[in-house]
Design a protein around this nucleic acid. Structure first.
Lengths: 199, 199
DNA sequence: ATTTTTTTGTAGCGACCACTAAAATAACCC
DNA sequence: GGGTTATTTTAGTGGTCGCTACAAAAAAAT
């Protein structure tokens, strides 16, 4: 099963590609945050008008959820990317930090992590709930993975990494350089090894 | 010179206390961020109506600037607070991290740092510029202070602390516990000593 | 060709945004 | 009291927000 296109496409066909629209939405939400991007701008960028927008995504928050889901199953997921290359827990964690330092700095108007900062200070409870759910799942996955190597200190070590990544994402959005993030990532990597080693 | 009240108060006197209004504004902006707080809500909370608001502060961004200035000269300034107690650079940095871990967790709906997160994802260039200015000044002061003890690595060490504080503030706004922030602060403190020691 | 289904474009909804014109009000001066 | 000055209240401004009613359009089914 690869192609999942609708069979029996009765009715007028869509004039735009939904996946491509989600991809463009990722970029907009990521660059400026949920509240700062309006449906008018989204529609203009996606090339669709309000009724098509709402028929396809239900609401602005609906598109945001699609965008976050797309983002977190892409190469932007630093934990998934680092884990996929294998190695010990320590190696994966160090690699994850370095990957974040590599992709978080501003590039074409986009910086940091969409999940960590995309709904920061949002006034919309729906957007905040979507992000909270993804953050919680990410933290749990990271903690469980760390527990496979350091069961006694998994919580504390997970906090160390999660809070460090929050700092890297936020700082990147404030303009931090790739070099600054890299040296931070290396220092946190060393801190992780050190904290994990202590009984 | 202590009392700085206007001499010759011609005209109808103000019916509200400007300093008290700024104090309440700090709370609102800090708890939800610049964009999520409207002038209508500010006016209602401050007990003043739009024309009085604009006569006193010029604009929403004007009040925000007053609020940020008030905030960063208060006990909420973790660097100022830690430095005031004296000691070596290493002692001050470790104390600053612990102070942040103590005051950043959510308390009465307020969490993290107003300067670090108050204009995050804001659509208003004025608010972003105000925050950018305060962040730059804070980082410079921190770097210069670190340079008095570790001149060769001041930039890297300042990045370590600034990015760590960004992470603590952002995580606190996401609901991180005081215990989690404290253990993070201690680990970063150890990392600072370690990174500073390396030639 | 007609019907059915779905998406389209046009136009606009009420709610909220930051902000303000105009006149009444309350203090000072003389 | 009359004049001056600054702040008050009332009542809005135009603009943008997320979202939608409605009917034309474009496909398949009959």
């Amino acid at each position: 099963m690869v192609a999942t296109k609708k069979l029996d496409p009765r009715g007028r066909p869509r004039s735009f590609d939904v996946e491509e629209a989600v991809h463009k939405a990722v970029r907009l939400f990521h660059s400026r945050g949920y509240d700062a991007v309006g449906v008018a701008e989204l529609g203009a960028e996606l090339g669709i008008k309000p009724p098509s927008f709402y028929a396809a995504f239900g609401s602005k928050a609906g598109l945001f959820e699609r965008a976050v889901e797309h983002y977190s199953t892409s190469d932007a997921n630093v934990f998934g990317r680092a884990k996929a290359l294998g190695g010990t827990v320590n190696e994966v964690i160090e690699r994850m930090l370095l990957v974040a330092a590599e992709i978080y700095p501003e590039h074409d108007g986009v910086a940091g992590c969409l999940v960590l900062d995309g709904a920061r200070n949002s006034a919309d409870p729906e957007a905040r709930a979507i992000i909270a759910s993804y953050k919680k799942a990410s933290r749990t996955a990271l903690r469980d993975f760390i527990a496979t190597g350091h069961p006694a200190k998994a919580e504390t070590l997970a906090d160390l990494i999660v809070i460090a990544l929050e700092g890297m994402s936020g700082s990147a959005r404030d303009g931090a350089s790739a070099a600054a993030l890299k040296s931070f990532a290396e220092a946190i990597g060393r801190a992780f090894l050190r904290e994990a080693k202590q009984s």
